[in-house]
Simulated scan of single mutants.
Amino acid sequence: MEDQQSEPGAVTDESSGLDVEPIAEDGDQLHEAGDDHDGELDAQPEPESDEDEASPAAEPPARRKLGIRLAGVVSAAAFVGAAAFAAGAAQPYLIDRAEVAIKLDIARTAARAIHTLWNYTPENMDTLPDRASVYLSGDLEAQYRKFIDAIADSNKQAKVTDSTEIVGAAVETLDGPEATVIVYTNTTATSELSRSIPQIKYLTYRLYMKRDQNRWVVTRMPTITSLDLTPRLQG
């Protein structure tokens, strides 16, 4: 049962701030209109008023600094908002990738389980139950061990060799610590009793699996499709 896989990628957050230029207030420009006099009198300059001292040229630097600080605050707020948006958009993507990785792990485990259970020779049948126990839960392990013990002697005597090829595997359901997996196989069995004519079957299993600490194990594995493709000799 193989994947997220998709099986990596990198998520890059780009954010931009808003630059706000401070707006200077235009002071009132004071214009003096001199009176035109006919005669000897010269116009005397009027003393500078307080309003002249408050012209834009004399605007204190504190006001300009305040405008710059406000622009920086707005820019920082925009940056934080953009980063939060990018993180929110990336979260579903990361969750999907994690789920894909879990499904790949389940599918690989199911495929390895079926491959181990149904690949054996007369020479290694005695160790088959121990090798298969890694993938099976307690009850199913006991049932499989009992089944192999029952056929081991006759299979070794008839020199039965069972070879199973995994055609495909797919996670059907995933609900927390439980999952179901469909595994498609082609199985070929040969023995001296069949005059070396292989028995060929196309089998599909549904594996019920659960998470046991840090690994997935099979609790049930009913056959849902069985198609016999063994050649028939005309007699």
Rank of each mutant, 00 (worst) to 15 (best):
G9N: 04
V11D: 07
V11W: 07
S15R: 08
E21W: 03
A24E: 14
A24H: 06
E25V: 06
D26F: 05
D28R: 00
Q29S: 04
H31R: 07
H31I: 06
A33T: 04
G34V: 13
D35S: 09
H37G: 06
D38K: 04
D38Y: 07
G39F: 03
P45R: 15
P45I: 10
E46Y: 00
P47K: 03
E48D: 10
E48G: 06
E51C: 06
E53H: 02
P56D: 10
P56W: 11
L66C: 05
I68H: 03
I68V: 09
L70N: 09
L70H: 08
G72H: 05
V74E: 09
S75E: 08
A76P: 00
A78T: 09
F79D: 04
A82G: 13
A83S: 06
F85M: 12
A87C: 03
G88L: 14
A89I: 11
A89P: 04
Q91T: 12
P92D: 08
L94R: 13
I95V: 14
D96C: 11
R97L: 14
V100A: 14
A101H: 15
I102Y: 03
I102H: 01
L104G: 11
R108P: 00
T109W: 03
T109R: 11
A113D: 03
L117A: 09
N119L: 12
T121N: 06
M125W: 08
D126R: 15
L128V: 12
P129W: 12
D130L: 00
D130N: 08
R131C: 04
A132D: 00
S133N: 05
V134P: 01
V134K: 09
G138M: 05
E141C: 09
A150N: 06
D153F: 09
N155M: 07
K156Y: 05
A158D: 12
A158R: 13
K159F: 05
V160Q: 01
T161S: 10
E165H: 14
E165K: 15
V167R: 13
G168R: 06
A169T: 10
P177T: 14
E178D: 12
T180F: 04
V183E: 08
Y184H: 07
Y184K: 06
T185K: 14
T185S: 02
N186V: 05
L193N: 15
S194N: 10
S194G: 14
S196C: 07
I197G: 00
I197T: 06
P198D: 07
Q199D: 15
Q199I: 13
I200L: 14
I200F: 01
R206P: 04
K210I: 13
D212M: 05
D212F: 10
D212L: 09
N214F: 12
V217M: 05
T219E: 01
T219R: 10
R220K: 08
M221C: 02
P222C: 08
T223G: 02
I224M: 06
S226Y: 05
S226M: 02
L227A: 04
L229M: 11
P231R: 05
G235L: 12
